[in-house]
Nucleic acid binder design. Sequence first.
RNA 1: GGGGAGUUAGUUCAGCUGGUUAGAACGCCGCCCUGUCACGGCGGAGGUCAGGGGUUCAAGUCCCCUACUCCUCGCCA
Length: 616
Amino acid sequence: MATQFITETKRTHSCGALRGSDIGKEVVLFGWVQNRRDHGTLIFIDLRDRDGLTQIVFDPDLGKEAHERAQKLRSEWVLGIRGKVRARGQQMSKKEGKVISATNDKLATGEVEVEVYEMEIFNESETPPFEISEHVKAGEELRFQHRYLDLRRPQLQQSIIKRSKMNAIVRSYMVENGFLELETPFMGKYTPGGARNFLVPSRLNPGKFYALAESPQLYKQLFMVAGFERYFQIVKCFRDEDLRLDRQPEFTQIDVEMSFVTQDDVFTIIEGLIKKLWKGVLDIDVPTPFRRLDFYESMAKYGNDKPDLRFGLEHVELTEVIKRLGPDAGVPMITEAVEQKGIVKAMVIPAQYPLSRKETDDLEVFVQGMGSKGLGRAKISETGEWTQAPLFKNAKPELRAEILKATGAKSGDLILFQFGKESLVHTVMANLRVHIAKKLKLIPEFGSGGVWNFLWVVDPPLFEFDEETNQWAAAHHAFTRPHDECVQYLETDPGKVKCYRYDVVLNGFEIGGGSIRLHKPDVQAKVFKALGIGDVEAREKFGFLLDALKFGAPPHGGLALGMDRLAMLLTNAESLRDVIPFPKTQKGTDLMTGAPGDVDEKQLRDLYVKTTAQPK
RNA sequence: GGGGAGUUAGUUCAGCUGGUUAGAACGCCGCCCUGUCACGGCGGAGGUCAGGGGUUCAAGUCCCCUACUCCUCGCCA
């Protein structure tokens, strides 16, 4: 008499659980058909659940009725089976013509199999649009349309499971350290500056809009003013900016804020958290404290504020050399660039990594793709001649000598140059450095633990000059605390003011950032003044925060870690999309649901909204 | 907003200098098979070459436009 699965017969083991020690047990497994190998009489099925694979065998001698129905089984059908665990043992192989071991070392459960005498087919499946297999690579477009199937793939599933584990580790660590998990609104008031906001029209307040929080920044500061002292939250943030492989319009932060702390106190807490995460997820001990790198040094050597320190290829600044030699240098293009306030930087590719002419040309195409006019190059020959160096054809010997001295280039080395507008030179050189490192395989593989190069980038400028508006703008936000010794420059020389802002960087990814906040109204006033923000404007934009700071705000600071990027790095994923269950495409669409979608006229009327988009 | 790559069978791709009936592998369907494990053997079905326009005696192939996907610069305090 057949048992009723689920209601009467409960699952006893997962598909990843059975071992040699379970031989002889009667078990019940539930799962999906991963694979079917039908030998006519014997039928092997790999049954899959989130925990693993178990081979189940249908043998007409042991369960005639089950075997009969097993012939129909196809990929992704959902089954419940009852049977007995047995050793795979030694079997006569027809292929080999002799008795061999039938165990499968590739499977955790490979020592055993389950002989089935009863089966219920919970559900059949249509042939899936792509195989749920590690061996077959379906395109992302198709995988996104059927994300629920894509999420069945063990690799992706394991990444999502790791994320769940990360959440648990974060919560337990933060709570242990006296942090309160507090919630903040997603729908808030639009505040200017920073990322573009998603807007939500208010039906009850015609013509008014909420802004989806780009981060809980302001609210978490208010928690400090309120006296909660230590706050954290694993929270969604929303930014309506263009996507990249490490950027999604909605993403998750581990948001942290603490009262009565210095920058060092924040670092210690975050280093401890990262240590726990790496230990818990990868069983790797991360050494602390992390290295600290001055912002300006980072820009000079690596061209950005999130350097990958797993390899060298440091940049060398040549601007001063060119300035010193003036028009006598013999390379008018470079001299001109410097005269127009540009900079000159170089990078040496050591002789042990020879690049062909074609490869170097490809590098030029690469930099041109970023807006560079070209790639200056000079190959130093055995005899010290400069070859493949049209730019330096008429360069004076002093210049060549100075460049060799500054770069330390030796015979056989290739020197690459960029010159021109500072921001472009930095962008191009920073990307070129990473591009070449990948090409030359200077970056250690993830396997065998990988190399985890954590660092804090510290002491950046509080302001940066915005050439478009011809004004100083906040480099981070207007509530970052300047170094005490820099306060004197707030009015006279804003560019000189460094601040307590910090980014935590791992292998070229900014995984988090934050600052110690300004809590003194008088200094705050000076910062607003430097930014050209008047009292009225400040009140209008940040009134509630300024008010709050007046009623006894404690010194405080914090940081936010990018949960998605952490997950991406911890799982060796190539993209954020591989650690987010339901990600969006580069145009911000969801290929499964079709979001964003149309709404009808009535909905828009209710919201007092009219679209100006032209119908297609 | 700019630059680049791509779109051919269910899937991943090949398709040369424009020229017969658009191919392969996997998957799918059928038959056979008692030790497979990405089983194997034999047979079969399956195509709006993204969409539109153009050049040509002739277009998957050349040109233009559009859509979508990806990478990237700008943007992301």
